[in-house]
């Protein structure tokens, strides 16, 4: 019969340590500029997700993350919430009616009702985001046992790889042109070795992709040089 003593300070310390540990993430960013961007002034940007596909729809929390990040910091831009924008121009930017090309956007904003509404709410740029974060690999197991006295113990090794791949197309509504694209890719491996106490090393792949894409968008729109 084996008996294990429960050590709360030890366990709490291990958990604290675990939260500070992170798996490795490899980011890749890129941008292509098609046209010059002007100063935003008192106008705003809308971060939108493409919803017309039946697979690979961008996660809501990623759109929220990018919107919040673009609106934060010393180089922040004014951001109008996605839902507020699509409600304001209903039904022109619904999943099955939103323009998929610059030509179609031109037709939409040429409608006086829509063009006037977009001017009224002060939107200058539409940023369409496509892409997802997917689990690309996974291996191993961790098994846990509860011993007498309430001491849980886990043994094993678990690892998985996540990959983020996002692209943002930036459209200037005022000029009716596509001004550029920025991309953010990130790959990271997370793992949990467990010898009594499991210690997770979590690769924050999607947050990394969000931060990089947001910085790219701010840099792209904040830089008025061609």
């Amino acid at each position: 019969m084996s008996r294990c003593r429960f050590h709360p300070p030890l366990l709490a310390g291990a958990l604290l340590l675990a939260t500070a540990l992170a798996g490795c993430v490899q980011p890749t960013i890129d941008q292509v500029r098609f046209a010059r961007t002007g100063p935003l002034g008192d106008q705003s940007v809308v971060i939108l997700s493409r919803k017309h596909k039946t697979q690979g729809e961008t996660e809501n929390d990623f759109i929220s993350c990018v919107s919040d990040s673009v609106a934060a910091g010393d180089d922040s831009l004014s951001v109008l919430a996605e839902r507020q924008f699509v409600d304001s121009v209903f039904p022109w930017f619904e999943p099955r009616t939103a323009p998929l090309t610059m030509d179609k956007l031109g037709e939409v904003i040429a409608e006086p009702l829509v063009g006037n509404r977009i001017r009224d709410i002060g939107v200058r740029y539409l940023v369409w985001i496509e892409g997802t974060t997917e689990r690309t690999d996974q291996a191993g197991t961790v098994q846990c046992t509860v011993f007498t006295g309430g001491m849980p113990a886990c043994f094993g090794f678990l690892s998985w790889e996540d990959a983020s791949n996002y692209e943002a197309s930036i459209w200037d509504v005022t000029e009716g042109i596509a001004v550029g694209k920025v991309t953010s890719e990130a790959v990271g491996t997370s793992f949990i070795p467990a010898v009594v106490v499991p210690i997770p090393f979590i690769a924050r792949v999607q947050p990394e992709a969000c931060t990089n894409l947001s910085d790219q968008i701010k840099s792209f729109l904040g830089d008025s040089e061609a």
Partner: peptide, 28 residues
Amino acid sequence: MPVSGFSVAGLAVLSGSRVGRALYGAAA
């Protein structure tokens, strides 16, 4: 982060003590 490969196996109580039974009940 979901850990879908995580499994709880071999749930064991190595004593017939009151604590063990209480623990077993909670775990069950």
